[in-house]
Simulated scan of single mutants.
Amino acid sequence: MIETDDGHLAELIAEYEENGWCRSPFRFTDPAVNVLRGSLDAVCRRGGPEVVHEKGSTAVRAVHGCHEFEEAYAMLVRHPYLLALAEALTGTPVYVYQFKVNLKQAREGQAWPWHQDFAFWNAEDGLPTPAAVTLAVPLDDVHENNGPLNLIPGSHRLGYLGPGKVTPGDRSDWRRNFDADPEHTMEADRARELIDSFGSTRATGRAGTIQAFHPNIVHSSSDNASPDRRALLMVSYNSVDNAPLHPTRPEFLVGRNTDQLKPRCDERFPLEAV
């Protein structure tokens, strides 16, 4: 495990506050990524309600909450560096609010429209404030053609921009917000206006890189038109003082244990400089 210092965290905090997004100068090594990929394959084979498929397909679109039953992921969310980064960016002790791996299968993975994560979290779970951060680790190399996140840097500084589209229907069906046409999304014209003001950037890079996203940054992703899968592991850490007010969605989507998460080292997950 490489040693990190407060100086690099201070730089990341400044970048995060300015852009709502930052990339760590460290990544998980290739052997560490292989462990995480193996766990993902096991979860997808396991099936269960935590696994969501593309609409009308057997292709896996996302898996949720697998840190609760997959040992490697349980250790990953307690990784000392991830916790230090999450606590530095939120300024508070944290717990795991949500864990998921979003997948875009080769030539099958469908887009996610423009949205703010906080729009979902506030509307669906009653999350009081955006005192949270999502740390993302791609398990595959991410390039322009396999559905990278498209971000509008600085858009988080506008705050919560509203609930977005809301479709009448069964409010108890949590899966409605995990297909290619979810609720709480932003109109494309509004996103284009924001891009005109703030610009946009794509979160490409090697598997194992570590990036952080603010709950209010406006983002989307495109279809995967390439022969390469894109799997993105995301841990959303929330302040222990910011528990959701009405968490009715399943526990594998919304963590109920709000106790401060304590770091634990695991030699399978070393870091290296990018």
Rank of each mutant, 00 (worst) to 15 (best):
I2R: 12
G7E: 15
L9H: 13
L9C: 08
E11P: 00
I13Y: 06
A14F: 01
Y16N: 09
Y16E: 04
E17L: 05
C22N: 04
R23P: 02
F26I: 09
T29M: 03
A32Y: 14
V35K: 00
R37T: 13
S39A: 15
C44G: 04
R45H: 10
G48H: 02
E54K: 02
S57K: 10
R61A: 11
E68C: 00
F69K: 00
F69C: 00
E70N: 05
E71H: 02
H79E: 09
P80C: 15
E87I: 05
E87A: 09
A88T: 03
A88S: 13
T90N: 05
G91I: 06
T92F: 10
T92C: 05
V96W: 10
V96C: 07
Y97G: 06
Q98I: 10
F99H: 11
F99K: 00
K100R: 11
K100Y: 08
N102L: 06
A106I: 06
A106C: 08
R107H: 12
G109S: 11
Q110M: 07
Q110C: 01
A111N: 07
W112V: 07
W114C: 10
D117V: 02
A119H: 08
F120A: 05
F120R: 04
F120W: 09
F120V: 12
A123V: 12
D125N: 10
P130N: 15
V133C: 12
L135W: 04
L135H: 07
D140Q: 06
D140A: 11
N145W: 06
P148T: 14
L149Y: 06
I152T: 04
I152C: 07
L158C: 05
G159K: 14
G159Q: 09
K165L: 15
V166M: 15
T167M: 12
R171K: 13
S172C: 03
D173W: 00
D173L: 02
W174F: 09
W174I: 05
R175Y: 01
R176T: 12
N177Y: 03
N177K: 07
N177M: 13
F178L: 15
D179M: 06
H184A: 05
T185K: 07
R192Q: 15
E193H: 03
E193T: 03
G199M: 04
S200H: 04
A203D: 15
G205Y: 12
R206W: 10
T209W: 01
T209G: 15
A212I: 07
P215C: 14
H219V: 10
H219L: 06
S220P: 02
S220Y: 07
S222V: 08
D223R: 00
D223C: 01
D223F: 02
A225I: 10
D228W: 14
R230S: 02
L232W: 08
M234Q: 15
M234V: 12
V235M: 09
S236V: 08
Y237G: 06
D241C: 00
D241I: 00
L245A: 12
T248E: 09
E251H: 03
V254H: 01
D259Y: 10
L261T: 03
L261N: 01
L261D: 03
C265L: 08
D266Y: 01
E267D: 15
R268L: 15
P270M: 04
V274D: 14
V274H: 14
